[in-house]
Design a protein around this nucleic acid. Structure first.
Length: 209
DNA sequence: CCCTGATTCGC
DNA sequence: GCGAATCAGG
């Protein structure tokens, strides 16, 4: 594979969006993350952080006469600070806040759900189906509610191929996350969630209610 | 262990 | 220019 205009464009786009080199590599296909990183550097769009005014390069003073003069004033206004930033806004907060007086819960809760929540799915990848009030073995359900306490509570961006992609909570709420525990080899979910995600055809049928 | 980007250097 | 190997970290 070679770096065609299209591929380079996609690379720039994704890199600009804060995607990781490996993700970009997978998207492009035919290249490794190393190739992507290498290209990124050659393109000179490495530091995703704004034009960090690091002119005071003490080292560049005498020694290395590496005339790094490729800085064409790179006017990159579009260099948005696309930091993933997973705001910890809605943290359960289970600590006994011993504030001076004011014990009368002043309603300092994170955020209230916009009453009009229309099950909005966070754009993107194939999200696993919620088990809803289906017919799932109570054992499995119990197992799930158990592990959800241990879940890593990852954000969409933090998911990788080896993190459980089981969604928890309401996507329209701050209180939404993905399990994130280690996936079962070959599966998109962790052991517990595989249990409720993949119901054996037979058991489904046999389940008489 | 999983992952991240950065650098080097033979091709 | 390219990217595997390697480095340096989280």
């Amino acid at each position: 594979m070679s770096w065609t205009d299209e591929r380079v464009e996609l690379l720039k786009k994704m890199w600009g969006e804060g995607q990781s080199a490996s993700q970009i590599a997978k998207e492009l296909g035919g290249v490794t993350r190393n190739a992507v990183i290498g290209k990124v550097h050659r393109l000179g769009l490495s530091n995703r952080a704004g034009p960090t005014p690091a002119p005071a390069t003490p080292t560049a003073a005498g020694a290395a006469a590496k005339t790094e003069t490729k800085a064409k004033a790179a006017p990159k206004p579009a260099e948005v600070k696309a930091r993933p930033a997973a705001k910890p806004a809605a943290r359960p907060v289970e600590e006994d806040v011993q504030e001076a007086g004011d014990d009368e819960d002043t309603d300092t809760r994170p955020v209230t759900v916009p009453h009009t929540r229309k099950a909005i799915i966070p754009a993107g990848q194939p999200l696993p189906p919620q088990p809803s009030a289906n017919e799932i073995s109570p054992e499995a359900l119990a197992k799930v509610s158990e592990i959800e306490k241990k879940a890593r509570r990852l954000t969409l961006m933090e998911l990788t191929e080896r993190t459980c992609k089981w969604p928890v909570g309401d996507p329209a709420t701050e209180n939404f996350w993905f399990c994130g525990l280690p996936t079962q080899p070959g599966k998109p979910y962790c052991e517990a969630h595989v249990g409720v995600a993949f119901q054996p055809m037979s058991s489904r049928r046999d389940r008489k209610r």
